[in-house]
Design a protein around this nucleic acid. Structure first.
Lengths: 347, 347
DNA sequence: ATGAAAGCGCTAACAT
DNA sequence: ATGTTAGCGCTTTCAT
């Protein structure tokens, strides 16, 4: 294996500046600037000398200084999501990145890890770097700290969830309708006792999906029961308890709607051990859902489209698009694969 | 002017500066600077007036200008990976982000999408923004374009693969050994005709895993056959052909080693249709591998640890750590789940 | 305790 | 075709 060899790694040994290049080439700084920025008005011979000096010194323009002087855009946007490693947010992030790249922008990104303080720290640090705009999966309960940024002209787009106490462009899935369609699918298979495993109710998407779940049952004339609903963070221990309660009581559920990808996966793991498995519809699609022992029916969101839409909206604003804050709801898609079509077992 | 007029969404109209704040508070800029940076030497009353003005104007310090003047660190690092949405790279990225946060650094990130030009563009753009350091999953065949950056003192850490034509700190998995152990596992189950579905041979990890595959077979006195090896990008069509060739020839393989997570998933999808499935070991672990019809045995890497290790190395360099470039190989872990223990079927 | 002036690396606006 | 000067928003240095 390529073993160690001598090399001093990190030393601010020196970034040469335009002034250095100018001196080395025997020209003025403005001439170097012209060459670096490919402006016209430099003789071929001079330009060649400058380029040589640039090469020799390893010069690279300092964009920070450039942007400060120009005072326009910084060519960067900030993205704060909940968790970059979550298979739902990763494609969203990737899509934002792609749109940013097409617009010549760099991307600052960070995960809030559901901690309002972290969201705030990240957002404000990005603003201090003068990002041209922000894309945000809100976690805080209050976003009024963003008012000054908005007033200063920094466009903000919220994605997946709306901001609280702040009027911004917002892109999200039609969560209530998605949940409703998931439940209706189970109702069509004959189920009447349908449980809902949702995330913590403070989370907007979780609340919306609960709303859709209830609406579907009510519309079908099926009573809802508190014992069939669990709303909490997807910790295995809690899910285990909730499932036990729902599946073993006097009125056990025959079907489940899972509130998001993490809950679905955790639930599948719990259910795998059981002899008889309830019917199941998961919110969010996930890789290999089709290859499981019982392929999993899901209400799919399109995270990449969420990200793309949000980013395009942001750059539209940056291109001068005026008008009231937009609220865009993208449709979900029910994908039947088997688990949602399981019939009711009669004990 | 710090105009406080009603403004529409995006208008680079008004960022107030220290000067504005100073004027509003009736003090000098240096006093504002002192308050903003919590330096001592400002009277309580003055400080209060300044803070009021800051609040009223929605002032936020411009870190770009600050950093330019200070000339030290920018408090940012750049991360270029192959694809942020890939379930292997996403946790790696997340781990880097976490370490960066702990060190008070922001993260620029971008996906090279396996395109050398994109890698280069991203890296150089990050350098122009004067990131303090770079973490890179190399895609180019030649990284000599980074020599000036390195010479200027920007530490560079390569992760998952080494750079070509550049000596940098490098963190990767022991790919050859991992592949070897995967094959040995299949040999122990009695297999002698073992196929390898690898990624394109230009990719360092793919080449190393091929090497481990060959080494294991050779050590066991089992001949290798070209027809049992396929090295190419994980396109479904190509994988289909490769699998057909391996599984239906005169000497069909009885077992497969898949070269990475994407290939494993694609192969599983192909194999799902078959009546008799070969034994299979996948390189890279993936979610739900344990819940598939035949739970999948894998050679697991630890992407988060790769990222964490690389980031910690980077910040160690930034803290002045000298010494030769490091080459760190992290172990892989074989996780038997079933698919790798399937016996040889005798036709 | 406070502020005026210089300058970080660059570019806009004028010279020449 | 090329150079000079000023200034972006901030901090550093040095007065007061």
């Amino acid at each position: 294996m390529p073993a160690s060899q001598a090399r001093p790694a990190a030393e601010p040994g020196g970034r040469s500046t335009m002034k250095d290049v100018a001196a080395a080439a025997g020209v003025g700084v403005k001439t170097v600037s012209r060459v670096v920025n490919e402006e016209s008005g430099v003789g071929a011979a001079t330009a060649a000398r400058v380029r040589e000096a640039i090469e020799a010194l390893g010069y690279r323009r300092n964009d920070g200084a450039r942007l400060l002087r120009q005072g326009l855009r910084t060519g960067s946007v900030g993205l704060v999501i909940e968790d970059l490693a979550d298979p739902f947010y990763a494609p969203l992030c990737r899509a934002v990145e792609e749109v940013a790249r097409r617009h010549g922008s760099l991307l600052f990104s960070g995960s809030s890890a559901q901690q309002p303080q972290r969201e705030r720290d990240l957002v404000l640090a990005f603003c201090a770097r003068r990002v041209d705009g922000l894309i945000l999966v809100p976690t805080s309960a209050d976003h009024s700290y963003l008012l000054p940024e908005q007033a200063a002209g920094t466009p903000i787009v919220c994605v997946d969830r709306p901001a609280a106490g702040l009027l911004t462009d917002t892109v999200l899935s039609d969560n209530a309708r998605g949940a409703r369609e998931g439940v209706e699918h189970l109702l069509r298979a004959g189920h009447r006792r349908i449980g809902f495993l949702g995330d913590a109710p403070e989370i907007h998407t979780a609340a919306e999906r609960l709303r859709g779940y209830c609406a579907a049952l009510t519309a079908a004339g099926v009573p809802t029961r508190e014992a069939w609903v669990s709303m909490s963070a997807p910790e295995p221990a809690r899910l285990h308890l909730a499932l036990e309660r729902m599946l073993t009581g006097r009125r056990p559920v025959s079907a489940l709607l899972c509130g998001n990808n993490r809950i679905t996966v955790a639930a599948l793991r719990e259910l795998a051990a059981l002899p008889h498995r309830p019917a199941l519809v998961g919110f969010d699609d996930f890789e290999l859902a089709d290859l499981l022992t019982v392929p999993v029916t899901v209400v799919a969101q399109d995270p990449a489209r969420l990200g793309r839409t949000a980013a395009e909206l942001l750059f539209a604003r940056l291109s001068g698009e005026r008008g009231p804050a937009q609220w865009i709801e993208l449709p979900t898609r029910l994908i039947p694969r088997g688990s949602g079509e399981l019939p009711v077992r009669h004990a």
